[in-house]
């Protein structure tokens, strides 16, 4: 009897963890390009209310603060909003749609002046967003578009992939006459990121239409990507490059390619996010050749600008697309 009970409780906990683990793979996200404001960020995450009375409050819920892009974005929004006299309450739902819904409901209960949402799932949080709207609170959607939000700020996922694919396609055209096999590190668990992958492939084919995708596997973190890339290289010794939907995965591919003895004049690796490690690697002019900057600071500036305009009743753009930039050895100095 007792052991039966134990089995059930173990199964329960394991399945909950499995769900959590699926959501936590830290990929969904985006650009990183972290700077040296690490300690500051940590303080900010924990802090909620300091100069309470009369101050105006804004709620912000992102995808996952273990992703450096969101660390940078939330820090920048916090600083810029503070200059306008707003205090930002930041929620980290760790990719879990349920806790994001709770966070939005809590923001409504606290009667914040605006809510900024990077949606974990656009359909699932619609009702919560509507609750906020019904309470008269403006909602700003970041990255994922939301039907009933007041404004959208974000980079186009497909465009991000395209920015990487175009750089890769040009390189393949120059170095390999537009011929060869490439591997793709995807993260098909998340819908938006599938578009990113499609952008990568379309971008490559724009310049090198004959390129063949010889491997297409899910890998959004360096460790998984390392194993996957070794498999790619094993199965296709002649392949000429591996491109990932984020720099995390691409960095794993980079280490695997270096380990397999690939040469930088014939083999390329590229990712998206412009994280510092990728910037360093590109600066070394080795196998790691491309990344894409999602411009988190520009994104934060736009978010705060639009937010203030909405609250004050001024005119504002409903759709605000943030331009992404390809990063390679030609403009790497700007990032170092």
């Amino acid at each position: 009897m007792k052991s039966k009970y134990a089995i059930y409780s173990i199964l329960c906990i394991l399945s909950i963890m499995m769900l959590a683990a699926c959501g936590n793979n830290d990929v969904d996200g985006d650009a990183n390009q972290a700077e040296n404001n690490q300690e500051e960020t940590v303080e900010n995450n924990g802090e909620v209310a300091s100069d309470a009375e009369g101050s105006m409050k804004v709620g912000m819920t992102v995808l996952d603060l273990s992703n450096p892009f969101f660390v940078q974005l939330t820090t920048a929004v916090e600083e810029l909003a503070a200059e306008e006299g707003y205090e930002v309450i930041i929620n980290d739902p760790r990719d879990d749609v349920n806790s994001q819904i709770e966070a939005i409901q809590n923001f409504v209960a606290q009667d914040v002046d605006a809510i900024i949402v990077t949606a974990t799932d656009q359909n699932a949080i619609n009702d919560a967003v509507q609750e906020a709207k019904d309470a008269g609170i403006p909602v700003l959607a970041h990255t994922t578009k939301l039907e009933n939000a007041d404004a959208w700020i974000g980079a186009d996922e497909y465009g991000m992939g395209l920015a990487l694919g175009e750089q890769a396609g040009q390189w393949i055209k120059e170095v390999h006459d537009g011929q060869g096999g490439v591997g793709i590190l995807n993260f098909d668990q998340i819908e938006q990121v599938i578009q990113r992958k499609e952008g990568i492939i379309d971008g490559i084919r724009q310049y090198s239409p004959d390129v063949e995708v010889v491997g297409d596997q899910q890998a959004g973190d360096p460790n998984t990507a390392y194993d996957v890339s070794e498999g790619f290289l094993q199965a296709n010794p002649d392949m000429i490059g591996i491109f990932g939907i984020n720099d995390g995965g691409a960095l794993g591919a980079y280490n695997a390619a270096v380990g397999a003895g690939k040469e930088s004049d014939t083999f390329a690796v590229g990712g998206i996010d412009a994280v510092p490690e990728a910037i360093d690697a590109i600066g070394e002019e080795g196998i790691y050749k491309f990344t894409v900057d999602q411009q988190p600071i520009l994104t934060a500036e736009t978010i705060v600008e639009v937010m203030v305009a909405i609250i004050n009743g001024d005119d504002y753009e409903v759709e605000n697309e943030i331009e992404v930039r390809g990063v390679n050895e030609s403009n790497i100095e700007e990032y170092q």
Partner: peptide
Amino acid sequence: FVITGGYPVF
């Protein structure tokens, strides 16, 4: 995460 601020160390 606290000691790294969420950033990789390299």
